[in-house]
Amino acid sequence: MSFAIKRVWGVLPVVFGVLLLTFLLVHLVPGDPVEVMLGDSATSGDRAQLRAELGLDQPLAVQFCNYLKHIAHGDFGRSIHQHADISTLIAERVPATFKLALLALAIALLMGLPLGIAAALHHLHWPDRFATLSALTLSAMPHFWLGPLLMLVFSLWLGWLPISGMESKASIVLPALTLACGLAAILTRMTRASLLETLNEDYVRTARAKGLPERLVILRHALKPALLPVVTVVGLQLGSLLAGAVITETVFGWEGIGRLLVESIEKRDYPVTQACVLVISLSYVVINLLTDLAYGRLDPRTESGH
């Protein structure tokens, strides 16, 4: 239990830092942020109103305190261009991103784990070469290149899946696959390395020596401990999927929070940009924390402080 409390306590300064950095974002805008956001056509009255609305006329420390107060109440302010509450805008978009990320995670696990296991069991033979090479290639393919490539193959040439948008149920497949491939590459490499290590452990040799069938040796003695570090990677990468969604959603016109972020950047709707960055990074922090706690549960050595 003390481990959990210590971890949660340790995360607080990070959360404070994330809040501070996202708060400061608007102040990094060169020149007058209000002028940049409203453009040349705005009257001085409009500007003064927005400045007051955003609280930019107050001292920085007061602004930050108000910012924290509003966030604590789940209030992210109002969008300048869409004239709606930002929390509503985000709440509308989150389910789409969540669905995309979960499906991507499932695909990545289905691709990465078997490939990694096959590679380790056939070390230095063709399954290993194939897995290593695919992982290397996939990790060199950013989403904005893999996405169009998948569109080309599965939509244009084969005609199996819709090219973009969210109209049909199958629309999610290509963006999820795009998002999944990078993670699948990492999982393959991680599973392979981890399993290769445990296969060399003394307890695996003992299991073999006592005449246990090879299938049981691998499943019970080698694979179980080998998957522990993989859990951490899955947790860490689930958060990264949210960042990856920014590009993938843009490529496929998927209306999630990543798309909202990019739209807000294009319209210079900085309060929305700020809120999206905050929501994505705080989810990342929370997911990482949960991963750590789960890891503590799975690996008894962490609990006792080793």
Binding site: V15, G17, Y270, S281
Partner: peptide
């Protein structure tokens, strides 16, 4: 180290996107 923790709390290139967005 606390400062680096904060920078690492932003996944992937999200923070770079945010900085580039506000810098223009």
């Amino acid at each position: 180290m606390h400062s680096t923790d904060v920078f690492l709390a932003f996944p992937g290139i999200l923070l770079a996107i945010a900085f580039a967005a506000v810098l223009g």
